[in-house]
Design a protein around this nucleic acid. Sequence first.
DNA 1: CACGAAGCGGAGGAGGCATCTCGGGTTAGA
DNA 2: TCTAACCCGAGATGCCTCCTCCGCTTCGTG
Lengths: 224, 224
Amino acid sequence: MGNMTRDSSRPATTRPLRRDAELNRQRIMIAARELFSERGFETTLDDVAHRAGLGVGTVYRRFPNKEHLIEAMFAERLDELAELATQAAHAPDPWAGFLDFLWRAAELITADRGLHDVMTSTVFGHDQVARAKDRLIPIARDLVRRAKDTGKLRADFAAEDFALLFKMIGAVSAYTHTDAPDLWRRYLGLLVDSLRAEPGPPSPLPVPAMDAETLQNAMARCHR
Amino acid sequence: MGNMTRDSSRPATTRPLRRDAELNRQRIMIAARELFSERGFETTLDDVAHRAGLGVGTVYRRFPNKEHLIEAMFAERLDELAELATQAAHAPDPWAGFLDFLWRAAELITADRGLHDVMTSTVFGHDQVARAKDRLIPIARDLVRRAKDTGKLRADFAAEDFALLFKMIGAVSAYTHTDAPDLWRRYLGLLVDSLRAEPGPPSPLPVPAMDAETLQNAMARCHR
DNA sequence: CACGAAGCGGAGGAGGCATCTCGGGTTAGA
DNA sequence: TCTAACCCGAGATGCCTCCTCCGCTTCGTG
């Protein structure tokens, strides 16, 4: 938690907050993390205030608008992802590293709809987020290159495919997380099977398919 | 077009429309098809009226609300899908039939966001749509059973997986259709590869990955 | 042709939802 | 004690969608 890099969300040029204000700021961040992870960008600052047990004005005093709050929350989460990718790229077995990254990143993204949203969309003015992405991209390319060099990753895989893979898994997760929170693993399992360069029998899927009734529920809950 | 079954969207108990009204009704349906295929359920009856070159009142006179318009439009399209599945289930080679259905259905769904929306959500009161789905389901099960019997489809595939496959492909399509309208084929290609029971090398993907710049554009366009 | 039923149009009411402000009351902490 | 910083939340603002209403137009029948 108390890391050594500068806290870029509150530059050192700013006077420290009054103690009660600092406490409330933390409450806001906690509430925001919870809500954004559940509902993504649809979350409202009014929601955040309510969940934090504070007035809306308090939230707007601290963060001029939603964009700033998102910046503060997600730049660091993207760095988490970059850290993951770095570790994976240096794994002794690059193919295992590649798979590891895929599963772990999917884990983060399905657990946090907000993270999915920042990863797959570009919002004008998210400087820190944009820079975090720029850091992530070359690492991902390196990861792909190494995995291909082992001959285990299909040759036509591109680093850009990560984005769409995550989009697909995010879609499954958004659709089914209420009724079958683990179902995304089934489909990532399928996708991973299709990425292997070397022929082999289908690997067992970690989760069974939805039954008909649960699927009905998911469809009923989905209003688009 | 002029089929022999009763036109359930305008029961025989209703007097025929005046000639100008009938013409306008067709204009509405055409406009609606265009808009719903582009934007899905987000389409507004006001939009439809405007595209049809008519007043909003005219549209509301013909269809009491959006639900009814959707019913009128999509019940028959779902039957199209059922027809497709039936043909596929009776193909001489069931595995080829299965693949054929997957590709053709994906073609329909990616070309028509509205069809995707009716397929993957349940809106209260869509009787005709619900019944069309009930007709489709057993056919899909049959298709899966036959494909498995050939030993070519992986044994752990379930008919329910269709829904999520389409959801994933729909997500890719919605995300990229402006910048790379064919890209979904790449990912359906991947998924299909993962459904084979018999080991084999990766089959060539029909479409290359997005380049970095195009991906940027897609991300910029996406606001959630 | 004339007349009544059917149809048309589109302004705008009703309702919802998100963003952000404002000013009076409260509190930390020097 | 005193003041700058803070808190609050009603509500202004703006945007959107759904749908109605009613004066005017058109069809097509007698």
